[in-house]
Nucleic acid binder design. Structure first.
Lengths: 230, 230
DNA sequence: TGTCGGCCGATTGTGTGCAATCCTCGGCGG
DNA sequence: CCGCCGAGGATTGCACACAATCGGCCGACA
């Protein structure tokens, strides 16, 4: 069942990694020959990879004008969070009805480790936290048992800023976020879909509030924003 | 703002049209040279188009084994409808808060024409109805003003069977469906997001009931897919 | 007779060349 | 001084050629 590895698939993975890690910054021009020499392949798999990443929503391609890493406006970021606020609670509710004891244990383990590396102090590591968070939500998405829902979610979460966002959390929001994961596990263990859905909704709204604030701070010249610096 | 027309984009549109119209049937093999000669281009834009359609979810590509039109199991169909039941009501609610009088008039016109061509009788034309229905939901999705939501929805609606489904409606369900559209317009005109959301939810559940029944009838030997994992 | 192994046609994956298009920069006119 | 216009360089879009891989057929052997 292992996906055969072709130059194209490797190029896709490499580019996605570069973009998600931020080594290719939003708005940056992606010249085909440049990437090709950099990755040691010809232009053909690079082109193929770019079109694929384009439909994943990671790059924008304008005919005859090349590809660029997607840039996110505050509006689009809010849109993504609104979408996630619609989808993730549904996934949590479905997961609450499907999870076995083993599944719940896995989620509990993840949530516990997140508290470990996420709590303020010397052992805090926000990059590890981000990875665990991704695993947690992925696991939940899979547990929901709806492939279409999972696909829609994975498309929405790709926004690089979403994946590397814990650095922007203030202490109170971060504590809430960690507590949410633990509570979601509790709701799922209890098989309570309504409870899981409600906590996940709160989780998303909390994340959205942090995110939007950070994005506005990062775009100080953003037009027409009533709340700005103090 | 018009997208420049390249061979690749034309090929994408042509293939999508062929698949959605059913001229390329689910499971059918898509040989590159065959499509290339058929569309009068070389293999390069065809390959590019296929990868793009693959990430739109219309074709499956297996490395070294070519592309096929996607096939839909009953389970996946139910998943798509569950997803739409999550997304469309949200879109309707957002649209209710955004629609201008002009928007409402357009939607009302569409709904009225749908009643015209959808009602049983000599003037019934289910293919036109399907097209109007697509326009109606597209319009609503745009009115919601959330590009991420619109993207997720367009991905979910692509299932060919979803677009050509009115032929499977029984009379009562079809009447309900037509009435739903009219009622959604009324809710939007009133700016009542809760109302719009509720009617849309009913609309989706009605459609799902028809669809699943039809699909099960078409796949009488479908085994219990409860443990399906893709 | 059933199964295994290797050959061969067909199809996809990749590299490269050429034409078309776009962006930049310098020159000219208002 | 500013804006328009055209030439040149650079980059993408497309086509074709070659290499790699897959699936099926046929024959040999147990």
């Amino acid at each position: 069942m292992t996906e055969p590895s072709t130059s194209t698939t490797r190029t896709v993975d490499a580019l996605r990694e570069l973009i998600l890690r931020g080594e290719l910054q939003p708005g940056e021009r992606l010249a085909e020959v440049d990437l090709a020499t950099r990755l040691g392949v010809s232009r053909t798999p690079v082109r193929s990879a770019l079109t694929q990443l384009a439909s994943e929503g990671l790059v924008d391609i304008a005919p005859n004008r090349g590809a660029r890493v997607v840039t996110w406006t505050v509006q689009e970021l809010e849109d993504v969070f609104d979408l996630r606020t619609t989808l993730e609670p549904r996934a949590a509710a479905l997961a609450a009805g499907n999870a076995t004891a083993g599944d719940t244990a896995e989620l509990a383990d993840l949530a516990e480790r997140m508290v470990g590396v996420g709590s303020p102090g010397p052992r805090q590591d926000l990059d590890v936290l981000a990875e665990l968070n991704r695993q947690f939500h992925d696991r939940l998405s899979t547990l929901a048992g709806n492939s279409a829902l999972a696909g829609a979610l994975s498309g929405a979460v790709h926004a690089p800023i979403v994946l590397r966002n814990f650095h922007t959390y203030d202490v109170a929001s971060l504590r809430r976020s960690l507590a949410h994961h633990v509570e979601i596990v509790a709701a799922i263990r209890a098989g309570d879909a309504v409870w899981a859905e409600a906590v996940m909704t709160a989780h998303m709204r909390n994340a959205r509030a942090v995110m939007v604030t950070a994005a506005q701070a990062a775009e100080p010249d953003a037009p027409d924003r009533s709340t700005d610096r103090a």
